[in-house]
Every structure is written in structure tokens, then in C-alpha cells.
Amino acid sequence: MTNEVWHLDGELAGRYADGRVTSVLATSVEQHLLRCETCRRLMQPSVRTDRLDHIWDEIVERVEAPGTSLLERLLHWCGVDEATARLVAVTPSLRGAWLTGTTVVLLLAFLAAQTAPQAMSAFLLLAPVLPAAGVALSFGPASDPAHEIVASTPHSAVHLLAVRTAVVVSSSFVPAALASPFLPGSAWAAMAWLAPALAMTVGTLALSTRLAPHVAASGLTILWASVVVQGFVRHHDPFFAATPSVQLASVAALVVSAAVLLVQRRDLAEVLRRVS
């Protein structure tokens, strides 16, 4: 015996579609519909085409334009408009790997510092380096395979630069800031990474008006690493970065870099968005 000996006729199909059958009969119809394509087709006249078209438009919109990553929603929530959130979210250094990497590295340094205060050097070394590296990775041809196309678009390069930098920087500043109150040493020492981090980031941007961003970031990283390592090796001080001299030097570097950046901002944006 086959399941298909019995089929709906047009009259029953219409009554079912209009809700004019008992629930027992409806159950029978529904069980049959799951198996019978011919009878399913009988339902087509019951739903208006424009309604189906409208639903389909919405489906296409959602299927092809998923575009609401967690980051985008977060940015949107912070008041960033949809289009800008889109641009920020596609910054390579903000896509998954970088965020995870930053958080994991900081977490490891944080845990190490919890167990051994000497490891504070590692935390104070890394916390300023990561945002600068993130900025370097976010710009220039290597970061965006579509750079040549991007360069020909009217979008304000300064705007793009500013927004991306802000988000990249906060992506490593926020976890570092969250970790700080729980670090060994005084509250001041735990926040010692902040001034060098700002100086490194703004410095990377300022140097990028003359050098490739990754060269700028690498140079500053080596400089900062030598300061921290030297402090640890020569003075046996894991908090060397927190000493007034280092902090003052950082603030001075920050001020100089910011001034350079302010003067050169248009050039920088144009430099960063193009290859040659």
C-alpha cells in the first residue's frame, strides 16, 4: 500500500487554506502535505504573490547582507552609524584573530604578573606594543587587498583613519585597562603602560607620514622593548616603566607626535591609503 492513494482536491485544499476544516482533518492534510509535492502545489493559489515577493525581498536582504558582526552591533550601540561601523568592522586587525590574539596575550601577561611580580615587565612591555602593532596592521596596502580601489573612492581618508585607529586602539586599551586594577604594585604602577601606549600609537601614526606603518611600529617597539628590558636587567626593576623619567619621556613623545600628526593629518591619510 502506498501513501499516495489519497490526495487533496481543490475544494478541500481551499477549505484547509481558509482554516475551514476541523483540526483532525487539518492534521490529516498536514501529514499528507509533508509527503506529497502535488498537493503542496495546491496551496499556491492561497497565498498572494505580492506577499510572497515581499517576504522574499526580506530574506534576500538578510541572506546576502549578513553584515552585523558582534563588533558592528557594539559600535552601533555606541552611536556609530551603520556605514562607519561597516568600515571599522572590516579592518583586518579587528577581524577575529587580532582581537583574540590581543586578549590572550594580555591575559597571559596578566596571569604571569599575578603569580610573579617580575612578570610585570612583560605586561608593561606588551600593553603599549599591541595597540601600535594593531594600528600599523590596519593601514597600508598589506592590510587591505582592495587598497587601490579604496584610494579612488570619495570617502574621507582622515575620517576612516580616525575611526579605525580609535577602535583598534581601544581593542587593546580596554582589556589592559580592565586588567590594571588587579595587577600587583600600586595603582599608579599598574597604569604605567598608558602613557607609553598612547605615545607608541600616536608616534606610529606620526612616523607613518614618512615611513611605512609597519616599519614605524617595529622601530618604536624595539625602542620600548629595550627600555623595559634594560630596566629589568640593569635595575632589576619590573616596574621600571613606571619610573618618573620613563613616564615623562613618554608624555613628551606623545605631545610631539600629536603635534606632528595634527599638522600632517591630511598627508598621513593620503599616504596610508595608497601604495606608492
Partner: peptide, 22 residues
């Protein structure tokens, strides 16, 4: 050598440029 992020879908790649085109 028009490049696009390889992790984008075709739609996202064009959408990205569309955003930049205001």
C-alpha cells in the same frame, strides 16, 4: 590587480566599496 579581502563574501566585498563610495 583588483583585490578583495578573501574572507568577504562577494556581496560584502562590493558592499564595502559601496560604503566608501558614500
Amino acid at each position: 590587480d583588483a583585490g578583495f579581502h578573501r574572507g568577504f563574501t562577494a556581496f560584502e566585498a562590493v558592499d564595502y566599496v559601496a560604503v566608501l563610495k558614500e
